[in-house]
Structures are given as structure tokens and as C-alpha cells.
Amino acid sequence: MVRSFRLIMGEWDPWMNMAIDEAVMYARGMGSAPDTVRLYVFSPSAVTIGYFQSLSATVNTELAKGLGVPVVRRISGGGAVYHDEFGEVTYSVVLPEERVPRDFEESFRYLTEAVVRAARKLGLPAKYVPLNDVVVEGRKISGQAQARKKGVVLQHGTFMYATDVDRLASLLTPPAAKLADKGVSSIKERVITASQYLGRRVSKDEVIKAFTEAFEEVLDAEAMPGRLTPLELDLAKSLRWKYSSAEWLRLRP
């Protein structure tokens, strides 16, 4: 391996996590940041929704408020995700567009291969299902989303190793037509965690190790532990205001 990528790990609040992903994308586009993979945790647990999603049609906002679970709109498309502080690792990968296939499905297939490989390292018979899911025996364990700006691709996604699926099912309200298309009647039937499948408590550290190795393989590059630059941090702090604003959250009420 001659190539390398910056690996950043850590826990941030939900708004800052989304702000950092966007800041790294801009910094990469300006040439002031390297190719980057982040492996991170939402603290506190939160729901993120896709850029084009309706807030009220997607999330039980009253329940989220009652439980103290923040809801944040992403810059990326895709669906709603429950990020469990104690059972979910989120990854993001930031690369120049020329490193990623242009076609939607091909680009998801390429970058999501890291998720599939990480899951297999943990002993899960995972496979990619277009457009943006990873499933284990037909049940979703990971969803991905992408944004593209300034010649850079950001893909971020979720990996549920011990997510509280009851809480997930109570917070997310997918349209019936979407569940029916997947052949299920409830979201709980549709998802699975690594711990559920393996019948043991999978740890966050195992997941992080598996993802680090998997990204090294897929990107054919060595992970170099690093941190955000002062520019990225400043940018992220500014962008955090957007993510925590009611206007952004209610872009599609």
C-alpha cells in the first residue's frame, strides 16, 4: 500500500457530527485536507433524516422530544436513521469524485464494500443490496447516504452492532408503501443488529477495528490516525449553527 487516508475517530454531538462531515468535504475540495475516513458515535443518541425527507412524515417528533433524542437533517439524501450512542457506529468517507464511480449504484457498491467486508470480519453473512443497504439474511444492518459537492464525494452510513431496535422502531415512521415493498409490515421486522445475529454482545471496539481494516482493503490505502485541522474545526463550528437551526430542520416540514 502506497496510498494512505486520514482516520478520525471520536464522539461528538449530533449537529457537530453532521457539521464535521460537511466541513471535511469542503476542506477536501479546497485541497487542504487528505482523503478521510471518520468512525464516530453520536452522543447523545439522535435521529438523522435525509435532505429531501419530510420531518413530520418520517420521525415521531413528539416522542423524540420526550425522550430527549435530537433530530438533525443531513446534507445527504437517503432515509432516516436512529444513531444509538451505545449500539451504533457511523462512518463517513470523503474522496475526490474521480476516485469514485460516477453512476449512483456503482458508487454505492464501491464504497459500501467496506461495510460488507467489516460485517463479514465480525462473522456476519452481509451483502450489499442496491441502492444503499447492507443486509444480513434479508434484514437491514446498515444504510448509506451520499452527498457530492466541489468535486468531492461524501458517503456516510450507519452500522448497528447493538442498537435498541424497539426505540428505533418507535422513533422512525416510514411510509407503509416502503415497508410493504420490502415485504414486512413493521420496521422491527426489517432491521437486525450484529449482536442479535451473533447471539453475543458485539463491542464498539470490534466494529471500529473491522471497519478500519475494511476501508484499508477497499481504498487500497493505509489508515493514518489523525485529527481535524483548525480550518476544518472552525468551519464545522460555523456549520453546526445550520444543523441546529429550526429553519434547516424544517426545510421540508
Binding site: G50, Y51, F52, Q53, G77, G78, G79, A145, K178, R252
Partner: peptide
């Protein structure tokens, strides 16, 4: 209003 879990560039 066009909403959903699709992807579009530029949004």
C-alpha cells in the same frame, strides 16, 4: 414540495 429518501445532485 418533492420529498422522500431519494438522492439528487445538485439538490
Amino acid at each position: 414540495v418533492v420529498e422522500g429518501d431519494f438522492f439528487a445532485y445538485p439538490p
